[in-house]
Amino acid sequence: MALTVRNVSKSFGDKKAVDNLSFEISRPGVFGLLGTNGAGKTTTIRMILGIMSRDAGEITWNGKPITSENVRYGYMPEERGLYPKVRVLEQLIYFGELRGMSRLEAERAASRWMDRLGVTEYSRMLAEKLSKGNQQKIQLIVALIHDPELIFLDEPFSGLDPINTNIFRSVMSDLIDAKKTIIMSSHQMPTVEQYCSDLVILDKGRSVLSGNLRAIKAGYGHTNLSLGCSAKALNTALPIAEKYGLRILEKQADGCEFKIDGDESAHGFLRDLIGMGVIPERFEIREPSLHEIFIDKVGEAK
């Protein structure tokens, strides 16, 4: 089970949308496709799906071209789209049938998924009458109704309220447990960190970072110190931090985030704080977040 993207390029006129992109997904799980707006994420997904031609390169699934005959794939595009004047169940059955299911199979699968996502009551409603969150759920069912093994989710969590986000997360966990291969494009870094084992970060169509997320983070080492304390305690802490060369990344309501050069300076800072009678509520030495890595890499590329 391997998706291989090798030296793929695509241009629109003079603009290079994807430039010599390569990556490989060799095991089930969630693969992150990250990048700024216009970085080439959607173009990459469309080329993998075969709905857009590529100028160069090769894309294969288990060594064969990706076609509906070789692999069952599902796609939830960033621009959600349903037939506004068609009843929900009817269009779910339609898309199920287009993906090779019989009408009965499609109807059963649609009912099962609607029940799972809590939208059964809307099955006879026109899609245009649904709220944005519910339309998004229907769109997710369209992508998953035929039980695909390769799933593309373009910004799956955008615009969802916390309750619907939780429902989507539980579906995502189920898909991971079911050993599905998921390619997720998202701007929500905490979500990507939560689910993605491997990723590629695109900038202007080029890969600026790719690989296993844990390995990437480990490569950066401990670069951050998160301090939790009161505002009064922070006033005491800041001169000490300066003494140990800690740079302020962000002041927060309940503390401060520092950039550190190594564990030693952080330990010294903690010793002095305690010596001054300040006991921090939180003291965490950690690797940089994906958000910081993204800013670092994309900012660096710019």
């Binding site: 799906l49 709905i51 794939y73 796609y75 595009p77 621009e79 959600r80 789209g81 349903l82 037939y83 506004p84 898309f95 287009l98 993906r99 769109q139 369209v142």
Partner: peptide, 15 residues
Amino acid sequence: SEKTSRVMETLVVSA
């Protein structure tokens, strides 16, 4: 209409 409602992208992936 299929382009306007953005259902086209889902459709061309399906068939």
